[in-house]
C-alpha cells in the first residue's frame, strides 16, 4: 500500500569558521588601462557561483556592469589569501573584503575626479558605466580609462575583512561562537510503499533566509542542489560499511538521486539584510541542505508511523521497521 505523509523542519546555521578562530579574507581592487576593474582574491570557485556573486558586489560599488569586473581568483601567486570555500563564508567574508577594497578604489577615483574636474567638492558626483560626472552638469565628466592613463603605477586598493566571533567558554558553553546566523525551513510530502519500503519525495517547499539575494537564480540553484543532496544523504547514499569494508564503492551502487527522483520544489527566498554583511547578503552554501533531511524523516513518520533514527533510510531498512511495527501491533 502507498501511504503519504508530510513533515517539516527548521534550522539555524552559524556562518564561518567561528568560535574566535581568525576568519580573514583579503582582496585587491585594481583599475585597468581600459577602465575595467580587476578584483584579486583567493576565493575558490567550486561551482557555487562565487565568481558571479563576488563580481556583482564590486560592480554595484563602482557603478559598473558585471562584464567590466575582471575577477581573478584561482592563482595563488597573484591573489591574496581569502580562506577556504567552506563554512558558507565566501559571500559574507570575502564579499565584505571585496566590497571594502572596491569602496577604497571608489573613494580614490572620486578624489582624483574632484581634482581633475576642478570641482569644489565631491558633492553631487556620480559614478556610472566607467564615468564620473557631475549630476547637475554632466559635461563635467572624466572616464575611468582617462584616470587610468594618468597613473604611473596601476591604481590598486587592498582590504582585509576579519569576521567577529568569540570563543565559547569551554566550561559553560556560553559565548557568541558564530556570526551571522542564517535560518531555513523545509516542508515535504512523501509517499512510502509499505510493501517495498521505497520512499518517494513527491513535493517540497524550501525557505531560506539569505540576508540579501545578490543573485536569486544562483540561490535557487543552490537550494535545488541542497535539496537533492539532502535527499541523497537521507534516503539513498549508503556506503554499505561492513567491518570497515565499503561495499558500495562505485557510483552504480553508491547512488545519488537523479532528476527523475527529484520532486517539484517551491523555493522561497527570505530577505532580511544583515548589517555586517555586504549589501546584507549572508552565506547560504550549507544551510540549504540541513532542514531537508529531518523534514523527510518526519514525513516518513507521518506516513507510516515509524521513527527512523539511522540514515540513509534505505528500502530494506524501512521495510524491516514497518514489518516489525506490524508484528508488534498484531
Amino acid at each position: 500500500m502507498k501511504k503519504r505523509g508530510k513533515g517539516i523542519a527548521c534550522i539555524f546555521y552559524g556562518t564561518g569558521y567561528g568560535n574566535g578562530f581568525p576568519d580573514v579574507s583579503r582582496a585587491y581592487a585594481e583599475l585597468q588601462p581600459d577602465g575595467k576593474v580587476a578584483i584579486y582574491t583567493g576565493a575558490t570557485e567550486v561551482g557555487q557561483g562565487a565568481k558571479t556573486a563576488l563580481s556583482q558586489i564590486p560592480a554595484e560599488v563602482l557603478g559598473l556592469s558585471v562584464d567590466d569586473i575582471i575577477f581573478i581568483n584561482e592563482d595563488t601567486s597573484i591573489t591574496p589569501d581569502a580562506g577556504t570555500a567552506a563554512a558558507t563564508r565566501q559571500t559574507y567574508n570575502t564579499g565584505n573584503a571585496i566590497k571594502m577594497a572596491a569602496e577604497e578604489l571608489r573613494n580614490e577615483l572620486i578624489k582624483i575626479a574632484v581634482k581633475e574636474l576642478e570641482l569644489n567638492s565631491d558633492i553631487g558626483l556620480k559614478m556610472k558605466d566607467g564615468k564620473i560626472f557631475l549630476e547637475i552638469y554632466p559635461d563635467k565628466c572624466i572616464t575611468f580609462s582617462q584616470i587610468a592613463a594618468m597613473q604611473e603605477e596601476p591604481l590598486r586598493k587592498f582590504a582585509v575583512f576579519t569576521a567577529q566571533t568569540v570563543q565559547i567558554d569551554p566550561e559553560t558553553g556560553q559565548g557568541a561562537p558564530y556570526w551571522p546566523y542564517t535560518f531555513s525551513a523545509c516542508a515535504v510530502e512523501v509517499e512510502v510503499d509499505t510493501e517495498t519500503g521505497k520512499v518517494e519525495v513527491i513535493r517540497g517547499a524550501h525557505a531560506q533566509d539569505v540576508g540579501r539575494a545578490v543573485n536569486p537564480t544562483l540561490i535557487e540553484g543552490q537550494m535545488d542542489g541542497g535539496f537533492a543532496m539532502a535527499m541523497g544523504y537521507v534516503i539513498y547514499e549508503d556506503l554499505g560499511l561492513e567491518n570497515g569494508k565499503i561495499w558500495n564503492n562505485k557510483l552504480s551502487s553508491y547512488i545519488i538521486p537523479t532528476s527523475m527522483d527529484m520532486p517539484e520544489i517551491q523555493n522561497i527566498i527570505v530577505e532580511d539584510p544583515e548589517n555586517t554583511a555586504p549589501y546584507g547578503a549572508k552565506g547560504i552554501g550549507e544551510p540549504v541542505m540541513i532542514s531537508v533531511g529531518p523534514a523527510i524523516l518526519n514525513a516518513i513518520y507521518d506516513a507510516v508511523g515509524v521513527r527512523m533514527t539511522e540514515i540513509p533510510v534505505t528500502p530494506a531498512k524501512l521495510l524491516k521497521a514497518i514489518r516489525e511495527k506490524e508484528q508488534k501491533e498484531a
Binding site: S253, I255, M260, T314, P315
Partner: peptide, 10 residues
C-alpha cells in the same frame, strides 16, 4: 522493476 531510484538503477 524495483530499483533504488527512478532512473539508472540496477
Amino acid at each position: 522493476k524495483l530499483g533504488l531510484r527512478n532512473a539508472l538503477a540496477i
